Amino acid sequence: MPEQASFSLPSSSSPSPSDSVSFVSAVLDLHRDTVAGWHEREPDNPYEGLLATICHQHQFNFLLWHEEDVARSHDVTDARIAMVKRAIDGYNQNRNDWIERIDEAIIESLGEAGVSPQNDAGLNTETPGSAIDRLSIMSLRIFHLEEQLDRDDVDQAHREKVTERIDRCRLQLADLSNSLSELLADLFAGEKLLKVYRQMKMYNDATLNPYLYNKAA
């Protein structure tokens, strides 16, 4: 990726997640703007506060996306594929680690706001960090689908298929955004609980992956 030092995003402070609609709107802007910018320069992070954490998590999805593209190429060497696979494992681990950090930051915000869950508050099936991760991936999918519309080597049928997929992705993005806004509003109203669920992936731990510890022995 060529770097263009003359272009950078303006620094942006984090809106409070307690203002759920404004916060989710800022997250969507961050995902959209950085995906477009990072295709012209090295990934950067000009944000502050919780948005900086979200941007950092988003970077790993961006890097992971493009390594996945290489992994499906048939004209690269086995050695290159091995390098890509190791990169994918690393980016995916970091992606999940930073989902947890987003949730930890939101729990901290709940504490700072003095929010106490109601006695009958229940858990959601998905944490805010996981929803933000899905929005990150969707922003990448929409960007790369829109690239398909500018190709000179495709026919109208291809463009119509891509347009249909873009419309579906935008609908999913809107639905997930609304659900995230509602979840955050419920959390700050004390109507929902938030816990950090650790991924605890075993394959990256040399003491838990049988192939690794048996080979070492």
Rank of each mutant, 00 (worst) to 15 (best):
156 Q>G: 11
32 R>T: 13
198 R>I: 08
107 I>E: 13
62 F>H: 13
93 Q>N: 01
169 C>T: 09
208 L>W: 05
178 N>C: 01
176 L>Y: 04
84 V>W: 08
57 Q>C: 05
107 I>Q: 14
192 K>L: 04
65 W>I: 01
22 S>K: 12
46 P>I: 03
155 D>N: 15
74 H>D: 08
81 I>H: 10
103 D>Y: 12
208 L>M: 05
48 E>Q: 15
193 L>M: 00
145 L>N: 12
167 D>N: 15
101 R>N: 00
111 G>I: 09
62 F>G: 07
34 T>P: 02
191 E>A: 11
17 P>L: 07
117 P>K: 13
189 A>I: 08
152 D>Y: 14
149 L>S: 15
217 A>C: 03
79 A>N: 10
96 N>C: 05
154 V>Y: 07
180 L>Y: 08
97 D>K: 02
34 T>E: 15
19 D>W: 10
114 G>S: 03
165 R>W: 14
78 D>V: 10
2 P>C: 12
214 N>V: 05
38 W>V: 07
194 L>M: 04
189 A>G: 06
174 A>L: 12
129 G>I: 06
209 N>C: 09
19 D>S: 13
143 F>L: 13
116 S>Y: 04
28 L>E: 08
65 W>M: 07
145 L>C: 11
127 T>F: 11
13 S>G: 10
151 R>T: 10
62 F>M: 02
89 D>K: 02
55 C>K: 00
176 L>R: 07
46 P>K: 00
178 N>W: 05
51 L>P: 11
60 F>G: 00
45 N>G: 12
109 S>Q: 15
118 Q>V: 05
25 S>F: 00
165 R>P: 15
6 S>W: 04
213 Y>L: 02
1 M>Q: 14
37 G>K: 04
8 S>E: 12
79 A>L: 06
213 Y>N: 05
189 A>S: 07
19 D>V: 01
185 A>S: 03
204 N>G: 07
194 L>K: 09
84 V>A: 10
175 D>A: 09
43 P>G: 12
149 L>G: 15
119 N>W: 03
90 G>I: 04
